[in-house]
Nucleic acid binder design. Sequence first.
DNA 1: CCTTGACCTTCCCGTTACGGGAAGCCCCAC
DNA 2: GTGGGGCTTCCCGTAACGGGAAGGTCAAGG
Lengths: 136, 136
Amino acid sequence: MSGGGLTIGDAAARAGLPVKTVRYYDEAGLVRPARGANGYRVYGETEVHKLAFLRRARGLGFSIEACRALLSLYEDHGRASADVRRLALDRVAQIDDKLAELQELRQVLVELVDACQGDTRPDCPILDRLSGEAGS
Amino acid sequence: MSGGGLTIGDAAARAGLPVKTVRYYDEAGLVRPARGANGYRVYGETEVHKLAFLRRARGLGFSIEACRALLSLYEDHGRASADVRRLALDRVAQIDDKLAELQELRQVLVELVDACQGDTRPDCPILDRLSGEAGS
DNA sequence: CCTTGACCTTCCCGTTACGGGAAGCCCCAC
DNA sequence: GTGGGGCTTCCCGTAACGGGAAGGTCAAGG
């Protein structure tokens, strides 16, 4: 009872993360716990909060590097909210790029699917397109 | 001149792929060229067509395994177009899942961004949300 | 004939964010 | 003291290649 020191298992449970992930965040330098005399990682409340923070940030799709930036802003009480906002906007832009790409692919695929009879015969506009017969 | 045999570099150029990728497709068993006496890969027209086919299929986001299936249907002249269509529909479903996920994330992020002043002050609803203050 | 330079070969590492599993130490309960 | 957890580190695998090293080959030019 050294005053609330948690083992990695307990910390992970409280943060809602797998132990492996918590260990990864340590190795990645995101949340570095103290070490006990036995070599065990020792997590305090602060670390647990950071882990939960990371869980939510990752849930929004922020990369580990973006999380590192967010975490440092989180800990910097003199931060400018504009910096946080910029990171979020970057993420939105990323998502928008991906959305546009996927929507384009979807469009093409649906057109091909619609053009294909989908029966037992071998004639297939999808394969024609893939084989280079410049459909549409 | 053994009648049209291409080296990997020429085959890759004709198919519009990087040499590394073509080598990878060989190793993955997608397009296995013959080998010359010197150990060089030798590509014929058929292989080049298959490589171009793969380039287009990959461009539509089909995984290597899906490409393997598509390629075998492409080569099977007795195929049923329904099988091809199914693969394409699977891909559409995959895309739809991803689109839904990204749209949800985008929604949340945009709300947070809109709620954030983005000035020089430290108050930030984005960080509040990430730190667990259940905003909205 | 020999050399350059551009090709080709294989092999290995790095990418993203972990998950699985092995080998070995530690600790608590019975 | 003897389990059976939980902890440690380390290594491999993921998808689909890209980068680069070490070494063999080939066609052209001097």
